[in-house]
Simulated assay, not measured.
Amino acid sequence: MTRVCLIGEAGTNLQYELLSRETAREALATYDLERPFENSLAVRTVSIGAAVSLLNDLNWYLTRFVDEVLVQEPSISDDEWLSRPLATELRNGALEPAETDEFCKLYGLERVDPEPDTPAGAADSTPRTDDGPSGETDSAGDGEPSGGADDSSDADRPGVAEPTHRLVEPLYVRRTDGSLPEYDLRAVEETLVVRLTESEYTP
């Protein structure tokens, strides 16, 4: 199965921002949610096509609350991820799997300390209503579309394990003779590889 992982922007609570909004919540309702990294949300889809379609459905939210979109396709790699543009090119047949491994970025993985149990929406208990895709705004005129229902209780879905690591400081690298350079931006025990399109690569 193809895995999709969304990394939230700094200062946001990604799980709350997505699950407290009706359209995003409905798009994610059929998936089992995971939190593999700090301030992230991940799901498993049936194919890379389904993964790209889900990301397209969530695009309004991705542009506002998400810093990084990762896609993991087992037929490509069991431990390396793809950027959203690269996954889209694969889905569209613009690239072959063997052509995806040259341009990459390495994230360092730092361990995070467990946090006290608090509801995901505790930092902002104001109920969220639906938003941009509906084209409706609330009576306050602040750009949040009207919905009326108190969705705050849905923002903390049970069974989502606490993350143990955070992503830090990406290093852009190029694979040569099948090998990637070592991550040297800071001392970390582990790294995460994200494959990129050539246009995303910025050495």
Rank of each mutant, 00 (worst) to 15 (best):
A155R: 11
V160Y: 01
P127E: 07
G11Y: 04
V168C: 08
P97F: 03
L14D: 07
N92A: 13
L180K: 13
R21E: 05
R174E: 14
I7L: 15
R195C: 10
P203S: 08
T100W: 04
T164S: 11
L196E: 05
T12W: 12
R157F: 02
E80M: 08
E22S: 03
L192T: 03
S153I: 10
T23S: 15
E162R: 11
D57A: 15
D57T: 14
E34W: 10
E198G: 00
L185R: 15
D131K: 12
L90G: 07
G121K: 00
S134Y: 01
E102P: 00
V71Y: 01
T45K: 14
E169L: 10
L6P: 05
D124H: 06
Y172W: 15
T202S: 05
L33V: 03
L196C: 11
L54V: 12
V168F: 10
V194R: 11
V52R: 12
S20N: 04
T88K: 13
P133L: 03
N13A: 08
A98L: 05
D151I: 07
L14Y: 02
L171K: 12
D150W: 09
P74F: 06
S83E: 07
F37P: 00
D142F: 08
D150E: 09
V194Y: 05
V173W: 00
M1E: 08
A27M: 09
A155M: 06
D124L: 11
D151M: 12
G159N: 10
S125R: 13
L167N: 04
E190R: 15
D79K: 10
E9H: 02
D154K: 05
L41H: 10
Q72T: 01
R186M: 14
P74S: 08
S139V: 09
D32M: 05
V193Y: 00
G148Y: 04
L55R: 00
Y201H: 15
S179D: 06
P158H: 04
T23E: 13
N92D: 15
G121R: 03
E34A: 13
L196A: 04
P133C: 02
I7R: 00
E169H: 09
T88F: 02
L28E: 00
F103H: 15
G148H: 06
E110Y: 00
L41N: 08
L90N: 03
P163C: 08
Y183R: 06
T164Q: 14
D117Q: 05
E89C: 02
R186H: 03
A149E: 11
P116V: 13
D131L: 06
V66N: 03
S53Q: 12
C5P: 07
I48A: 08
G143I: 11
Y172V: 05
L14S: 10
T100K: 09
L14T: 14
Y183V: 05
R157I: 07
R174G: 02
D154W: 09
N92F: 07
P133F: 01
W60C: 04
E26R: 14
Y172S: 10
P85N: 03
G49F: 11
D177F: 04
S152G: 00
T164C: 01
V173M: 03
T100A: 09
V173G: 06
H165Q: 07
T197P: 11
G11W: 05
V52A: 08
D32I: 07
P133K: 02
P181T: 02
T45V: 14
R3M: 01
G141D: 13
R166I: 01
G178M: 01
